Amino acid sequence: MAELTLNGLATRPSQVWGGVRLVPLVREEPIEDLRLDARLYDADAGVVAVDPRTVYCSYIPHGYVATWADDGAPAAAYGTQLRDSAERDRAPDRMRLRFHRRMARRLDKNRLRFLPLHLALEGYLALHFGGPELAWEEWSQQAIRRGLSPRAEEAYTGGAVRGLADALRVFEIHPGQCGVLVHVADALAAAFVVPHPADYRALHSTLVHDLYGELIYHYAMLGGPVPAFGARVDDTAVRSLADLRAAARTQRDEWAAFHDGVMAGGLLGGDYTYDYVQQVGPYRLSRLLPSFERQRENHLGELIADDAGRLAYLKTFRLSENQVRRGHLLTRLAAGDWRLSTTAAAMGVTEPELVRRIEAAGFGYLLRQDVRDHYRARARRGAPGRER
């Protein structure tokens, strides 16, 4: 397990639109030898062949193409491919599908196409996807033969998150900006980082097409406006332009320390498992899986970083409490070799309570019906056992 750091990036004062707060991330030195551009897709849904027996289906509006130089020389992005406005506005006769080969696919020696955010979400859906490795008698034949298939989760596009599209439209892009942290009702919704300021300008608007969790959608619907950042300078201590610059730097640094330590603390202070996906020249593309610790923020993600830990690309997705609960439960079951008695003892609950949690998480179909009925009857009789 390791923490996530925004190595090479600095936080700047936020801008606010209603309940949406956008916090810019800037680089003093942009990354020149790795560039990103978007490929926009005109299909309503995408189908990705993860392996010969597994497919991933979702709304996939665009993919990213990473281009790099082996010798460290500056690389140029190919540019965003835009759809014709007449085709975009015309209602389709039927749902259109686009088929993709793998989440990350090398196009040539120095170019890699990957599906942003879906790379991270597929890692969550595949969490212990194979199900029980030992055929314990409690598990159904479906669980033994097919594991958790099919596995589904819900998310909302950025267009459904109230205020986000307007905030992105009026947002002022800073010089040197290479990323943004998106807060909704002052809850961190997503982080987005790219290698170069030109990449950010090209990809800034794609945030409205990204997926956001249930928690963020409801915060946007129910939350009110958030306060804007305001600098307070003691005018009695300012005697020159140098004093004013120093006071402004102090305010900026205090805001950055507060934001990174408190507002983004759930993202930056979490423990993550790094799952290597592909080599991208001198960089590595990896998935981030959280610890699934209950009663705290948990973020999925994907990143590109070099061996020194310098962050070139990052995109994250905040899980809802229900999604955290499912991830936590699957992790505990796998750690206990999918044996109910072992897992219940490790969690400090009774076996009927564990079965109740499995059913509440939507995984009841994995258990045999007679086993579920048996544990329900024990729970009604108030079977003694350990409780958390």
Score class of each variant (00 low, 15 high):
323 Q>I: 00
27 R>E: 08
33 D>H: 14
72 G>M: 04
335 A>S: 13
180 V>D: 02
87 E>I: 12
312 A>K: 03
244 L>W: 05
355 V>D: 04
220 A>S: 14
245 R>Q: 13
122 E>Q: 15
32 E>W: 04
312 A>I: 10
80 T>Q: 10
179 G>C: 06
201 R>A: 15
221 M>S: 06
59 Y>F: 08
263 M>E: 14
293 E>Y: 00
166 D>F: 01
188 L>C: 10
324 V>F: 10
291 S>I: 02
137 E>R: 13
142 Q>A: 15
248 A>V: 07
271 D>W: 01
247 A>W: 07
300 L>S: 10
94 R>E: 13
158 G>Y: 02
138 E>R: 08
260 D>F: 01
255 W>T: 01
359 E>F: 00
258 F>L: 11
288 L>A: 02
43 A>R: 02
87 E>W: 07
38 A>H: 05
239 R>H: 15
269 G>W: 10
44 D>G: 14
275 D>C: 09
31 I>E: 01
263 M>H: 12
72 G>F: 07
18 G>L: 08
364 G>R: 02
281 G>S: 04
197 P>E: 13
223 G>V: 12
60 I>A: 02
242 A>N: 08
236 T>R: 14
237 A>N: 00
241 L>E: 10
176 G>I: 12
248 A>S: 09
346 A>L: 12
152 A>Y: 03
49 A>E: 11
13 P>R: 09
233 V>K: 03
376 R>W: 07
159 G>A: 08
81 Q>N: 06
194 V>A: 07
28 E>H: 13
261 G>D: 11
171 F>P: 00
296 R>G: 06
212 Y>N: 05
373 D>R: 15
306 D>T: 03
368 R>E: 14
197 P>C: 11
52 P>R: 06
262 V>N: 14
